[in-house]
Write a protein that binds this DNA or RNA. Structure first.
Lengths: 342, 342
DNA sequence: CTGAAAGCGCTTACAG
DNA sequence: CTGAAAGCGCTTACAG
């Protein structure tokens, strides 16, 4: 492989000039520029990015940590991240933690080993001590997207989880549901916590209560939704509506209901979360909460970039979500309908 | 950040010894080993991988090029690749080409810029001239998975596309279908070509013909399946079975059929390809061809690793696929049934 | 077993 | 505008 040295020899200039001609063509004479470019082309020169990184002390690479590459939800986020990153000359290393936080930690090491300049985390399950020092300051450039570390100094980009979730419940109640169940995510996951808070807040507002038996626990996957639905739908006094914290879990519910001969939406309303592509292609089409995924990815990357450039930007960005009504929701059968005392 | 120099000073040895103690603890005395390790821990030392790469001339990174990260099919392949890669101390850089071959080329540049040691491509749409020299030899370590460059020296790992596709058609015919349509991928895509060849071979074997109007063109996405189905199902003389070259397209067909009030499988049989997780969770569950995705990823990575280590391994690996019968297939209505002349 | 020294391929102050 | 030289942080032949 050709190096600057080879080009220098062929063009009859110094390596310094080669470097300049290639990086800042305007600070050398036109003649040298031509000579160098010609020599470079002739030798099929490709700059050694590793050597450059070592010298400049930046890798122009960021690593994005995703909890599970199998989850469709992250695809558009990554696309958004990459769009901005590539535009700004940054490489993106996608690290799949595969639900294993030890692996997530490995990806963080890339910053310490200088292979990445910063991290964009799509999970908040990494213990915060790994990310901040004793004074709560981030140890390295990091942005969290979709999730967040509440009450921390870690910058994040996300929707208003609590509000979005309460809006779902509000809509369900307005339709006349009051036997409402939900299939939530892990009880120590901040996102799941916020959404669940929204659910409860809205129920309380209407002086309603969600019995424990109506609360399923899942991990956002198809299978976990399917399994949780099995429990909720085997109850004597079934819910008339189930709010799932992910579309995948909602689709799992749809499948379980089909197996049990429960008609959707006539006998059971189902709401998902995320608005993944499949949600529009299942039958009936899924009512869900749209997250502006690409925008979240773009905003998070921009935020990281501005941190990387030494700025102290606004550390928290909240983006709008949107409730989309489709075919899996309708008022419950008349005998199960909520009578508002108004 | 601490460097070998700092450790050397603190431990009272040379940098060479530090390097040795850390990389090959057994070639130094126990005493020095202890001293060095202690100093390293005390300073919170993290080796600079960039400097190491420059020196050793290898990045211990491979880049995997995927045509579209939005396609669920690739998730398990990537998981398989990463499993092996991490076990062998390699990093994986996932590059989403986003259907744009210019971007795929960018990822190949990572090899030339020494940021990656080899590439694992999940697409064969990159022009082969980019990959091989005039003598047809690969220009750099590369393996293609799921797809292939027929009649080339580029190593690949894949299932028997042609055979798998013909097996689907055979099964459909055995059920009594003869009005069989298909929704294929691009006409210049080798995988799509092979599968289509399998389809035609089997039809011919039974002296059947697939009319042009029964052949839909898609890009493996939900939407393209949906749209192609719109055409096939608006025909006066509709097919009684549609074989889609991806599960996503098949799910698009399911949706379109639901909208048109066409009952599946009673009025229309549908077969997909890939066996993605969703295929089991749609209603009815999708009959499809299972590809051993994780195994493909693992085998491809092993193959690349052996090439990287200088071996000349068997350049083509064919893995078994499997036809899985589920709820979207059954014999056609009696009046449309194929009468075998046997 | 250990150290001094060279070198991987760049970029960039410093002179001129 | 250009060149000589240093240096980024490692690893590894070469001596001893």
């Amino acid at each position: 492989m050709a190096t600057v040295k080879d080009i220098a020899k062929l063009a009859g200039v110094s390596t310094a000039t080669v470097s300049r001609a290639l990086a800042n063509p305007d600070i050398v004479t036109d003649a040298t520029k031509k000579k160098v470019e010609h020599a470079a082309a002739q030798l099929g020169y490709a700059p050694n990015a590793i050597a450059r990184s070592l010298r400049t002390q930046e890798s122009k690479t960021i690593v994005v940590i995703i909890p599970d590459i199998g989850n469709h939800f992250f695809a558009d986020i990554i696309k958004g991240i990459e769009r901005i990153a590539h535009k700004k000359g940054y490489q993106v290393l996608v690290g799949d933690a595969d639900q294993d936080m030890a692996r997530a930690n490995k990806y963080i090491d890339l910053v310490y080993s200088k292979q990445a300049d910063g991290v964009l985390s799509l999970t908040s399950e990494i213990p915060i001590e790994k990310l901040v020092d004793q004074r709560g300051q981030p140890r390295f450039p990091i942005v969290v997207a979709c999730e967040s570390y509440p009450n921390s100094l870690i910058p994040s980009v996300h929707i208003d989880q609590e509000f979005s979730a309460s809006a779902v419940i509000e809509a369900l109640i307005q339709m006349g549901h009051y036997k409402i169940g939900c299939i939530r995510g892990g009880t120590d996951n901040p996102v799941s916590l916020s959404r669940f808070k929204g659910v409860q807040r809205c129920m309380q507002k209407w002086q309603l209560r969600m019995p424990d038996a109506y609360i399923g626990l899942g991990d956002y996957s198809l299978l976990s939704g399917y399994e949780a639905a099995g429990k909720l739908l085997s109850l004597e006094d079934k819910p008339t509506a189930i709010f799932c914290f992910s579309d995948e879990m909602a689709i799992g519910v749809l499948r379980r209901a089909a197996e049990l001969g429960i008609k959707i939406p006539e006998q059971l309303s189902v709401v998902g979360f995320d608005n993944i592509p499949f949600s529009e292609f299942c039958t009936p089409q899924l009512t869900t909460v749209h997250q502006p995924r690409q925008l979240i990815g773009e905003s998070a990357m921009k935020l990281l970039l501005s941190i990387l450039s030494g700025k102290k930007p606004n550390p928290e960005i909240t983006l709008p979500a949107q409730l989309i009504f489709r075919g899996t929701t309708m008022p419950p059968p008349i005998e199960h309908r909520f009578k508002m005392d108004i």
